[in-house]
């Protein structure tokens, strides 16, 4: 059985990417299970998705603990322990990262023994919005890496999953996926199905008897106020809203609509964005009646959270 895990930020299209890969496997005659997993359904929040594919009925379910292939569309997740990108990654796991840094650097930084491959975000095919189509590129690469998916199955899967979004998106995604498929040809089939260990020997789950603890400890309370100040949710952001203060007429709608309360007004009534906590939802951009707010891809300028 192939076990593949995708890691991304909400809004990067990873649920769709995993479904394209799942559909492509299905078209090639595999039994398939694909599923996204998310908590906060918000742009920028770390999410993951997984795909299982096998010639036999799949009875496994849920999180993949020992992946054959891990795909990461946002390299900032690799340094975020809560994203769990490296869970169960061994020397036989292939890691595919969308990054502009050298793979050797990532291998060293993360102390990885297995094969690490990269897709350049700068060189990736861009969509009509000017952003690199990393989800589609990663699917194209993954289809090549498993060595079980033909170009025609990949193409049909992209049509199947993206048709409702219109012809332009289908064409752009096809271009991104096929380019990556070709680029990674040298590694075709290097992700293999793992032999599972025998049920005779296994690592004990190390269960414990949960001790009683009084309610002062065990009730689910967060004691301190304003703890969110310490959590830099700005790292979620993949697109940065930038306000053109020349155009701004200080209507303050952005300040009212910001769901996170990170747009404050200065003494003169001009809006200021707290980029340490702005998650990049772009509701401000949508609301601004003068179109004075633009969105630029992260990473942003030096010295700011990107």
């Amino acid at each position: 059985m192939y076990r593949i895990r995708f890691h991304a930020r909400g809004g990067q299209g990873i649920k769709t990417a995993s479904r394209i890969l799942g559909t492509a496997f299905f078209l090639e005659g595999y039994e398939v299970q694909d599923s996204p997993r998310y908590g906060a359904e918000r742009r920028g929040a770390p999410i993951f998705a997984y795909v299982r594919a096998s010639k036999k009925i799949i009875n496994e379910r849920g999180i993949i603990n020992k992946p054959d292939l891990v795909i990461v569309t946002d390299d900032s997740l690799l340094l975020l322990p809560i994203a769990g990108v490296l869970l169960g990654v061994t020397e036989r796991t292939v890691l595919l990262i969308a990054t502009d840094e050298a793979t050797e650097l990532w291998k060293k930084r993360l102390n990885l023994q297995g094969l690490v491959l990269s897709i350049s975000t700068q060189a990736a095919v861009k969509g009509h919005a000017g952003l690199p189509l990393l989800g589609a590129a990663c699917v194209g690469a993954a289809a090549q890496l498993v060595g079980a998916i033909s170009k025609s199955a990949l193409e049909e899967a992209i049509h199947d999953q993206l048709q409702p979004l219109g012809k332009v998106i289908v064409e752009e995604s096809l271009a991104a996926a096929m380019t990556a498929y070709d680029q990674i040809e040298a590694y075709a089939g290097c992700t293999t199905e793992r032999e599972d260990p025998s049920a005779d020997s296994y690592e004990s789950p190390n269960w414990i008897d949960l001790p009683f603890e009084d309610a002062g400890t065990s009730a689910p309370y967060i004691h301190a106020a304003a703890t969110t100040l310490n959590v830099k949710t700005g790292v979620w952001r993949s697109l940065r809203p930038v306000i053109d203060l020349q155009q701004c007429n200080r209507c303050a709608l952005c300040n009212s609509y910001c769901p996170d309360g990170v747009i404050s007004l200065d003494a003169k009534g001009y809006p200021q964005i707290d980029y340490q906590h702005c998650k990049g939802c772009l509701i401000c951009l949508a609301q601004c009646p003068l179109h004075a707010i633009d969105a630029i891809p992260e990473p942003g300028q030096e010295g700011e959270i990107s």
């Binding site: 789950p205 190390n206 269960w207 414990i208 949960l210 400890t217 309370y221 967060i222 004691h223 301190a224 106020a225 304003a226 703890t227």
Partner: peptide, 28 residues
């Protein structure tokens, strides 16, 4: 009866609670 709950899970929980205690001191 056995709750399926590992030692590592409790260690992780204790880690979270220790943060809560620090914050408790800071906050109140």
């Amino acid at each position: 009866p056995r709750l399926l709950y590992g030692k590592e899970e409790l260690i992780q929980m204790k880690g979270l609670q220790s943060i809560a205690k620090v914050e408790q001191r800071k906050g109140r």
